[in-house]
Simulated scan of single mutants.
Amino acid sequence: MDEAWVIEECRKGNPKAQKSLYEYFAPRMMGVCIRYAGNRDAAGDLLQDGFVKVFTRLNEYMAVGSFEGWMRKIFINCALERIRKERIFSRVIEGEIDVEDTIPSVLETLTEMEMLQMIRLLPEGYRTVFNLFAIEGFSHKEIGEMLHITEGTSRSQYARARQCLQEMIRKMY
């Protein structure tokens, strides 16, 4: 796919280019959506919302950095908007948890699919923070700003997500 040409044609409203862009990036963006949504139906909704935003905001893309990275941010923000609307963090769980504990070495034996399935089983708040921190690489400070929670809450949610994952792994083995 000639990315620059497709983007330019999408900006002009060319339906064939839009279809091409969608078909090329949908599988990758679906992976992002599934990590945040937790199930395929909700992920499908996020995928559609994300592409609507991509197509409506395409003129904002200035070809600085990768197009896929630009799209990924849009999809993450769509997921976070949905989570905020559902007020996932209305019941904030504060507490001191040692976030430096290690995930057991058994993680090395898990497949990526097994790990993703376990992440999908996490409560939505834990799953969101876990995805943002462990997978997307945001800092707890950035996560706090994105989700309108404290940095400490982000750390706590991440630590609890890890504890849940560790418990799931213990039950598997």
Score class of each variant (00 low, 15 high):
residue 97 I to C: 08
residue 75 F to N: 01
residue 81 E to W: 03
residue 42 A to L: 15
residue 68 E to N: 09
residue 64 V to S: 12
residue 71 M to Y: 08
residue 63 A to K: 15
residue 43 A to M: 05
residue 30 M to W: 00
residue 123 P to Y: 12
residue 87 R to W: 02
residue 104 P to I: 09
residue 92 V to W: 01
residue 21 L to I: 08
residue 108 E to P: 00
residue 115 M to D: 03
residue 35 R to F: 01
residue 55 F to V: 03
residue 27 P to T: 00
residue 88 I to N: 13
residue 79 A to D: 06
residue 74 I to P: 07
residue 59 N to G: 08
residue 36 Y to S: 01
residue 48 Q to N: 08
residue 69 G to W: 05
residue 122 L to R: 02
residue 72 R to Y: 11
residue 106 V to I: 15
residue 62 M to Q: 15
residue 96 E to G: 01
residue 121 L to F: 10
residue 20 S to L: 13
residue 22 Y to D: 05
residue 51 F to G: 06
residue 22 Y to V: 07
residue 89 F to M: 11
residue 73 K to D: 13
residue 123 P to C: 12
residue 44 G to Q: 06
residue 54 V to T: 13
residue 49 D to Q: 11
residue 26 A to E: 12
residue 91 R to S: 15
residue 21 L to W: 02
residue 49 D to M: 07
residue 68 E to H: 10
residue 48 Q to G: 02
residue 49 D to K: 09
residue 58 L to D: 06
residue 47 L to Y: 06
residue 118 M to W: 05
residue 119 I to W: 04
residue 84 R to G: 07
residue 102 T to M: 07
residue 104 P to N: 11
residue 105 S to D: 15
residue 64 V to Y: 11
residue 90 S to K: 14
residue 118 M to T: 01
residue 82 R to K: 15
residue 38 G to F: 10
residue 30 M to F: 09
residue 75 F to W: 03
residue 76 I to S: 02
residue 112 E to T: 05
residue 116 L to F: 01
residue 27 P to M: 00
residue 73 K to V: 13
residue 112 E to F: 00
residue 104 P to W: 06
residue 68 E to D: 09
residue 80 L to M: 11
residue 29 M to D: 02
residue 97 I to M: 07
residue 24 Y to D: 09
residue 81 E to I: 05
residue 120 R to L: 08
residue 33 C to N: 01
residue 125 G to Q: 10
residue 116 L to H: 03
residue 44 G to F: 07
residue 70 W to R: 06
residue 73 K to I: 12
residue 47 L to Q: 03
residue 93 I to H: 10
residue 86 E to V: 12
residue 113 M to T: 05
residue 99 V to W: 00
residue 20 S to P: 00
residue 60 E to C: 02
residue 30 M to D: 01
residue 78 C to I: 10
residue 47 L to E: 04
residue 24 Y to M: 09
residue 21 L to H: 05
residue 39 N to P: 06
residue 34 I to S: 04
residue 23 E to H: 06
residue 55 F to D: 06
residue 61 Y to W: 09
residue 36 Y to N: 01
residue 24 Y to E: 13
residue 81 E to S: 12
residue 83 I to K: 02
residue 118 M to E: 06
residue 30 M to L: 12
residue 74 I to S: 07
residue 124 E to G: 04
residue 95 G to V: 08
residue 54 V to S: 12
residue 123 P to E: 15
residue 46 L to A: 08
residue 65 G to K: 07
residue 72 R to P: 01
